[in-house]
């Protein structure tokens, strides 16, 4: 088992811009979550499972944590090491939310969990605000395959 230290990194809004414009032929799934958000934590295992199923596809999953910076060491990183060992986790600590929520999607009101499909092929782009059930997540991801 490899150390999972590289599995998470801290990002800024500028990095978010990059994530919102994936290379042609790639599809990014951006899941905004936080350890303090119970419905977010509840749906994470569904995503981890889906990520394994889509392993050999063009789809990449990114889990963007909106946790409070002061809880990174005490709460967030221990949670990642236990629950998201093989996933790409990005820690976005910019709490000036009004400055960047619309960059992600003007229709997003800021509630989490929120999940976005981004791609150069805009017909594939979509978003879902709220907690997924297994069935709903399957229906959401299947057309991307």
């Amino acid at each position: 088992m490899k150390a999972s230290a590289q599995q998470y990194r801290k990002i800024e809004v500028a990095d978010l811009q990059e994530l919102l414009h994936p290379p042609i032929d790639s599809i990014y799934i951006l899941n905004f979550w936080a350890t303090w958000c119970a419905p977010c934590v509840a749906e994470l295992p569904l995503f981890v499972n889906a990520e394994m199923q889509f392993k050999d596809s063009k789809i990449r999953f990114f889990f963007i944590s909106l946790d409070f910076k002061k809880e990174y060491d005490t709460k967030v990183i221990p949670f990642l090491l236990k629950n998201l060992t093989n996933s790409h986790v990005l820690l976005l600590g910019d709490s000036n939310y009004n400055n960047w929520i619309n960059l992600v999607n003007p229709q997003w009101q800021g509630a989490i969990p929120a999940t976005f499909v981004v791609s150069a092929d805009t017909t594939k782009c979509k978003f879902y605000e709220g907690e997924f059930t297994e069935k709903k997540l399957f229906e959401f991801l299947l057309p991307l395959k």
């Binding site: 958000c37 419905p39 709490s95 939310y97 509630a111 989490i112």
Partner: peptide, 10 residues
């Protein structure tokens, strides 16, 4: 009008 992250109303 401003936006913010927050807990969704359950």
């Amino acid at each position: 009008f401003t936006k913010a992250i927050g807990c969704t109303i359950k």
